[in-house]
Nucleic acid binder design. Structure first.
Length: 572
RNA sequence: GCGCCUGUAGCUCAGGGGAUAGAGCAACGGACUUCUAAUCCGUUGGCCGUAGGUUCGAUUCCUACCAGGCGCGCCA
């Protein structure tokens, strides 16, 4: 908590006049064990300046320090460290009042007020079904959206659909060869599978017969030229698939403000090319149009193929310029897999070369692949797991657990959905996004330990106590915060105090896992407390004090879960 | 070949110049007539990839190497 840290800085400043407050503050750290104190000031770096041993300096300063206004309870010297222990009652009061005052907004801020952030995430290639491969961008992007919104930014969620490009030429070619109109008369799900099978078959047969590839490219060329049949089929396929994708987004509780995908920019690319040419960046090379980037030690950025059809770099450039004009963004964030890092470096560089100042505000947020134990997923080979299957399995598993543990629960279906989906989301967000994740059914369907259900369960548990204690706690007045003096209570309060800075770190690093990890820590601390101490005790004052702690924890768990795009069930 | 990313417990992963390196899973042993046992407590488990360097101090930063992943002109 800032106030306490600032007090320590003030105190230290009196003995370290040659250091400014900022430097002192940045040196303050949190000891590894609460028994050592709440804050520590290491004196090692002062040794040179004072020409004294660190532990001697620490000892000297410690002796000269005395708290003046009750924020710090006592100060100890340990080796080269000065350890500060906060006044627990005061700390409890400060933190818990802050959580209550903030409520659903606790942890957020207004730093982003008046600033627009555009997020490009999920952006699936809709020539293929929704697989677990699409999961990461979707949940990471959605969480970053929630986090930035929480910090006051006005965010625009864009699903930059992959609804254009050679893959559609391939699907059309495959359909022309092997498909029949009646194949697409079933439900969208069925039709999507038909299209998927065509896509897989196309790549399988293309291995034997390379002329298929040319056929696919030719159909895309036709599509770009406005060929009527190509258009009709493209529209048919994209409509079917988009309907399916939207169903899954719905299930996961993910929404978008814009579905302007690649095809949206189709009629805007000529002017983009013109801009590039006018800037003198375009060169012809082997019949294709490129931007040479050798000066920046990068391969060239390809704008147009030999046959005149566009490439995705062109579409991305066009989209970026369009977004700059439309949204006047403070930041444009692309949540796209790590394998495209070079592409983003290239096209950000081209934007810079075009003189757009906002090119510095474009960020690529990469993440690792989802892979099987045996290797990479491949849509082309049909080696995929459909996201819907994962979600359905997780929901079913949750239903079974509810049937066994809480058969009287009302609204079972909704809770099963919230927890099942939550398990999948949390499973993805729990680790650093840059790491590859192995897809493992056993892990996906395990709800013990560091999982989404664990955090949600803790929330339900806290909710349950809050509900029962409601009558005792009619407000946060007249609470004796000094009664929260157990180690387990202090640990929870410390974590509650930490939430805002974790949110900020998660935003700065575009790293939802920071929130996920935090929620695990908080849940663990709370469950420890729960097992060690009773909340609904006879002593009114103690009961009230503990109830504020429980309710504050519940609130922060709810806030954190919401930042991950997860529900916070009150019962489960 | 060049570039980017990743190597921490049997497995999945946190941590990220400082005090004895932490969780979860798995295994084993405990705790429900008491606020939800999807929980909690305990035991077992580590040359923090290797070798150098910077530093008072390196698992953390730098360099090289090794291993794995991903990229490197007409896919996205």
């Amino acid at each position: 908590m800032e106030i306490f840290k600032n007090r320590i800085v003030q105190m230290l400043k009196e003995h370290l006049s040659e250091y400014d407050a900022g430097t002192i503050k940045s040196l303050i750290e949190v000891p590894p064990d609460p028994k050592m104190g709440d804050y520590a000031f290491p004196c090692f770096s002062l040794a040179k300046k004072f020409r004294k041993a660190p532990n001697f300096i620490a000892k000297e300063i410690t002796q000269g320090l005395k708290d003046t206004d009750g924020y710090i309870a006592h100060i100890e010297n340990a080796g080269g460290y000065i350890n500060f222990f906060v006044n627990q009652a005061r700390f409890n009061e400060t933190v818990l009042l802050k959580v209550f005052a903030g409520g659903q907004r606790y942890g957020g801020s207004s730093e982003g007020n008046g600033k627009n952030v555009v997020l490009d995430f999920s952006s699936p290639n809709i020539a293929k079904p929704f697989t677990v491969g699409h999961l990461r961008s979707t949940v990471i992007g959605n969480s970053i959206y929630k986090i930035y919104s929480f910090l006051g930014y006005s965010c625009v969620r864009i699903n930059h659909l992959g609804d254009w490009g050679t893959q559609f030429g391939k699907v059309i070619a495959a359909y022309k060869r092997w498909g029949r109109p009646e194949d697409l008369e079933g439900t969208p799900s069925e039709s999507l599978m038909v299209i998927f099978n065509l896509y897989v078959r196309f790549h399988k047969e293309a291995e034997e017969d390379p002329s298929l590839e040319a056929e696919g490219r030719a159909w895309f060329k036709k599509l770009e030229e406005g060929d009527e049949e190509a258009r009709r089929l493209w529209k048919l396929f994209t409509e079917i698939n988009l309907k399916e994708f939207k169903r899954i987004y719905d299930l996961m509780g993910v929404e978008f403000d814009s579905y302007a995908g690649e095809s949206f920019y189709e009629d805007k690319m000529d002017s983009m090319l013109k801009i590039l040419e006018d800037a003198g960046l375009v060169e012809e090379s082997e019949g294709a149009l490129i931007v040479d980037l050798s000066e920046y030690k990068m391969p060239p950025c390809l704008l147009q193929k030999q046959d005149g059809a566009t490439l995705y770099a062109t579409r991305d450039l066009t989209a970026a310029v369009y977004r700059a004009e439309t949204y006047n963004f403070h930041k444009l964030i692309y949540v796209v897999g790590m394998e495209q890092t070079l592409h983003f470096k290239q096209f950000f560089k081209v934007l810079e070369l075009l003189g757009y100042k906002w090119s510095k505000s474009c960020v690529h947020v990469p993440f690792g692949l989802i892979r099987f134990a045996e290797g990479k997923m491949s849509t082309r080979q049909g080696k995929v797991i459909f996201l819907e299957e994962v979600l359905t399995q997780a929901i079913e598993m949750t239903s079974e657990i509810i049937k066994e543990k809480n058969p009287d629960l009302v609204d079972k279906e909704k809770v099963a959905r919230d927890v099942g989906i939550g398990a999948v989301i949390f499973g993805d967000l729990r680790n650093n996004r840059i790491k590859d994740v192995k897809f493992d059914w056993e892990e996906v369907l395990n709800f013990d330990g560091e999982t989404g259900p664990y955090v949600q369960y803790t929330h339900a548990r806290a909710s349950s106590i809050s509900r029962r204690g409601q009558k005792s706690l009619d407000g946060i007045q007249d609470i004796d915060f000094s009664l929260l003096k157990e180690d387990e209570e202090a640990a929870v309060v410390r974590l509650l105090a930490d939430f805002p800075s974790r949110v900020k770190a998660a935003a700065e690093e575009y790293e939802p896992s920071i929130i996920a990890r935090y929620l695990i820590d908080l849940s663990r601390a709370f469950n420890k407390f729960y097992n060690a101490h009773r909340v609904l005790v006879d002593e009114e004052d103690l009961k009230k004090a503990r109830l504020t702690l429980v309710e504050a924890t519940r609130q922060v768990l709810a806030n954190g879960l919401s930042l991950l795009g997860m529900a916070a069930p009150f019962e489960m």
